[in-house]
Design a protein around this nucleic acid. Sequence first.
DNA 1: CCGCCACCCTACTTTTTGGTAAGCTCTTTC
DNA 2: GAAAGAGCTTACCAAAAAGTAGGGTGGCGG
Lengths: 126, 126
Amino acid sequence: MKFNFMINLHNKTYTCPVDVSLSFIRGKWKVLILFHLHYFQKRSYSEIRDNLPGISEKVLAQQLKELERDGMITKHLRTRKPLRVEYALTDLGRSLSPMLEFLSQWGIEYLKTNGIDYLQDQHLYK
Amino acid sequence: MKFNFMINLHNKTYTCPVDVSLSFIRGKWKVLILFHLHYFQKRSYSEIRDNLPGISEKVLAQQLKELERDGMITKHLRTRKPLRVEYALTDLGRSLSPMLEFLSQWGIEYLKTNGIDYLQDQHLYK
DNA sequence: CCGCCACCCTACTTTTTGGTAAGCTCTTTC
DNA sequence: GAAAGAGCTTACCAAAAAGTAGGGTGGCGG
């Protein structure tokens, strides 16, 4: 039983629907950004940046742009005079929420079985 | 509200549990391999290869090794005389099944809203 | 005994991705 | 009016990931 045929979409080729899904979340920080927005609903540029320790401005701006282009997030101009923006998930982005939650829970579980209690630690560090 | 502290595990640093989860499935083909094994239960090296059009033997062997090292899959020696092996998900690997199913369904949905009926096409190509 | 297939491995190159550092506008704050 | 912060951009460089091309063993089928 084989079904190795290709899917063509947006001038790219995918091996299967999973591959299509993955194309949206590839990139070191994308899922983290999506999870962040899932968790906080609306966030400014600097709020996202400050909660992703290690990300560079270049990469952040880049991935935000790609996520916006792909219809996963929106960028809302709050004020133009002092430039203030707000990022949030779109409906499409929100449709990934179950996965984002799953990844978070799975990670917490994995840490627990490896002797790290994330929730307790979170409490310690706050 | 901020909680930017780090998690240390296996000599690496993670920003949050989601990041921990992601570390297991990074790589262009890993999720595809996992989904494949989720779908077929047991598969040989060449069965996996033939169902991932475009993957090189180098990368396949590499990612299989990493997945094995990370406890996601097992490699079972079926026969030694003619070397025949069988890859399958471990319990840990199987614990990702909900996500694998989700990614597949999400991709199918996405394709549908973009005018591609995957199931129908699958029928056509088989 | 020739070739093919399963099951890889290795050296090397290319591509992709991410990081560094700096700069720029506008605005509020001291 | 200097500094600092939001929200970026750009040029350049490094690292990571993936691709290419070949090699190798050991059956098995003809």
